[in-house]
Design a protein around this nucleic acid. Structure first.
Lengths: 233, 233
DNA sequence: CGTTGCGTTGATGCTTGTCAACGAACGTGG
DNA sequence: CCACGTTCGTTGACAAGCATCAACGCAACG
């Protein structure tokens, strides 16, 4: 029997950082930075930047969904983050990007020139501070994912993933998935078949329902959380 | 047949951030910060801080080895980072620490009061910038570990771990391990038995030798790298 | 109305976890 | 200094979980 020390709702961020409202001119102390941003539209399936490209810019997603992805020589693929409106990315790269960013849907983003924003950050402590917050949030998210990949079983990972999506993009009780089962698998370190089976298990357990292939309805959120926290199924 | 695009030595950092020389008064732009630090000694096995403690301080390791560790309700354990001299840690926590830090050996560290260093960072853009570098390095390290846990097999992980240790703490060709097999397992998302078996495999393959239980000698570094990059064994 | 892509499900095998025994190193106390 | 117990690492036998291979169903699209 365990005391449940933290029943608090886990912090909403899960893609790299987060900022809830994707407004491009939030009064968040970054006005001088936002002034440097260029709005862009990217269509589904296209790369935003490639692994190894010169990291001249960093980005903020306005609408749509993207992912950060690393491809290995043998074809294995790891998605390190799903990105949603409000998320910053490409931020941690100093010289070259360490992975690619791809559009999972048509999307809009703002592109910031690194050199010029760096100049701002070097002279304006407020901006530097906000940038650091963003980096810390990304780090926090990455560490949560370490725990997921390091010590969760397949159903636990899927439950955890669904809760993550639920926190971030819930529309009532329904999650709309922008990504395929294969993408989810590459995110969770599983195969697409294992993801599919785990979803079926959750469905049979009455925790979720699956109205169609790209939507999932959360029926028992507490049940999902217990599963994700390791209280077994 | 694959072209080897990046034969460049991977960046040395692997624990959170990194700064090669563990001098406490490096002229790195942090003099005003270092002035706030309190030197401490911690003995082997003791906790530096606990999961959920108020994050009043952050730390820099001067000597010895520590680890950042998360314990789950069911007893499963994940080590998110091994910390070596020069590493900063406890940096990303805003209010509470998200995991514990433990001393694997007797060690010395410097403890910085968060509130006071935050004040400095808010007014001094140079310090804020250095802090951001530290956060970015931690993030970069965490993302490399995501790849490890997400898509490497057991022998690949162990090879990757040994190379990591080799980069950071090599003494000639020999690595001295401050941690047990169980700790390595908790770091790699494997059991101690699997770690032990993987080490035996590497030994039989002639890539390493194991003079004693806490030392490992790198015999074929390129072979280890090929294995870690997925060129099979 | 066929084609194509995606998701589901089943059968099977490999990798890793689990349980257990053994052995080597270390520390303690006689 | 040696006998002892304790801890840690290694190895083996077996089980479980997940990956792989393959077939099938369903929906979207031309």
């Amino acid at each position: 029997m365990q005391l449940r020390v933290q029943t608090t709702t886990r912090s909403a961020a899960c893609g790299p950082p987060g900022h809830e409202a994707p407004s491009s001119s939030a009064d968040d102390g970054l006005e001088a930075v936002h002034a440097l941003g260029m709005r862009r539209s990217i269509e589904r399936g296209r790369q935003i930047y490639g692994d190894g490209d010169a990291a001249d810019h960093w980005f903020r997603l306005l609408s749509g969904t993207a992912c950060a992805v690393k491809l290995r020589a043998d074809g294995r693929r790891q998605i390190t983050a799903f990105l949603q409106p409000g998320d910053y990315f490409g931020f941690e790269a100093a010289i070259e990007y360490g992975f690619a960013a791809e559009a999972l849907t048509d999307l809009e983003l703002i592109r910031y020139p690194r050199a010029r924003t760096e100049v701002l950050a070097r002279t304006d402590a407020g901006i530097a501070h906000r940038f650091r917050e963003i980096a810390h949030r990304s780090l926090d998210a990455a560490q949560r994912r370490l725990l997921m990949l390091g010590l969760m079983s397949a159903p636990e990972r899927v439950a955890s993933f669904l809760l993550e999506q639920f926190e971030r993009s819930a529309d009532g009780q329904v999650i709309h998935l922008a990504m395929s089962r294969a993408d989810i698998g590459d995110y969770l370190g599983l195969t697409l078949e294992t993801v599919s089976r785990a979803i079926s298990v959750l469905k049979r357990a009455g925790l979720i329902s699956v109205p169609n292939r790209r939507a999932i309805c959360i029926l028992d959120r507490d049940g999902l959380e217990e599963l994700a926290e390791g209280e077994a199924l």
